[in-house]
């Protein structure tokens, strides 16, 4: 059996387990010490961990662990820490007017970044994640058409008190031919080819009360009516003929199912003045604002 082993092999290789295959003996050498140390250190770590942290799953949740650590607690602590970092900025925001924030690049950036979630929660449902709105339905905040005004104070006012414009339905006021002519007129207007005839009809039909003598809308004429600018390329409710006809016939926020719906809720009830201030800064920055 041991024919190719020298007598002093036992001493040299240590004792064996008595197993031997084809002259190959299985030795009983101890594992290296560092290895044993790591093994013991590992299970000691496991036991300590078992007691300190939630680890054993039971019927009604797991063991609690001596440290009382939970994931949600760690999350809340992180939130508190985050609030702590933000606190000095927020108190600075309270003391600043929206105009001052806009003039200070650092604070402006802070306001814009930290109001992201507020915007997402309150505004983006209608106005879209980037304020792009929805064509013909919800106003686009990134363009330069400001129905009520795009200066920072007006934006604050709009967010705080909301907006609910009204345009009368003309289907019972005007005859159908006039409605059709008016539609042709406003479409021509936005293309820069309006006729004097059209202007006359426009004035006679009393559109000027809200849209102004120049048809440039409530904001330009400072009458606060929320009437759209009809001379530019942007259409609040869509610019093809059928849509224009529908808007003229059934108006905005009237009691017809075909009437345009345009209601912006008042956020002053739900958001703090500072939140609205920061939101206004963000909205102002979306498209470059208006002086």
């Amino acid at each position: 059996m041991d024919n190719n082993m020298k007598p002093d092999d036992k001493e040299k290789y240590g004792s064996d387990t008595g197993h031997e295959w084809d002259g190959i003996r299985e030795l009983k050498n101890p594992p290296p010490r560092w290895w044993m140390i790591s093994l013991h250190a590992s299970w000691i770590f496991v036991v300590v961990y078992l007691f300190l942290y939630p680890s054993i799953p039971l019927l009604h949740g797991s063991t609690k662990g001596l440290l009382g650590w939970t994931m949600i607690k760690e999350y809340k602590e992180a939130l508190t820490e985050n609030d702590k970092i933000k606190a000095p900025f927020l108190s600075k925001i309270s003391g600043m007017s929206a105009r001052e924030i806009l003039a200070d690049a650092g604070m402006r950036n802070f306001a814009e970044q930290s109001t992201k979630t507020t915007f997402g929660d309150s505004c983006s449902a209608c106005h879209g994640g980037g304020g792009q709105g929805k064509k013909g339905v919800y106003p686009n905040l990134t363009d330069d058409e400001w129905i009520y005004g795009g200066d920072i104070d007006t934006i604050i006012e709009t967010i705080t008190y909301g907006r609910q414009p009204a345009m009368p339905a003309h289907k019972d006021i005007l005859d159908d031919a006039s409605v059709n002519k008016l539609a042709d007129f406003v479409i021509a207007l936005s293309q820069g080819s309006a006729t004097p005839e059209g202007w006359n009809l426009f004035k006679r039909s009393n559109c000027v009360a809200c849209h102004g003598n120049d048809a440039r809308g409530g904001n330009f004429n400072k009458n606060g009516s929320g009437a759209a600018n009809l001379t530019d390329k942007i259409w609040r409710f869509g610019g093809n003929r059928d849509e224009v006809l529908q808007t003229i016939r059934f108006g905005v926020n009237q009691d017809f199912p075909e009437s345009r719906k345009a209601v912006m809720p008042a956020w002053g009830e739900r958001l703090s003045a500072d939140q609205i201030k920061m939101l206004a800064v963000k909205v102002y920055s979306l498209g470059g604002g208006q002086k």
Partner: peptide
């Protein structure tokens, strides 16, 4: 990217 571009009132692109 949101929006990728905006049509302005004078027809220009921003």
């Amino acid at each position: 990217r949101m929006p990728v571009y905006t049509e302005m009132s004078d027809g220009s692109i921003q």
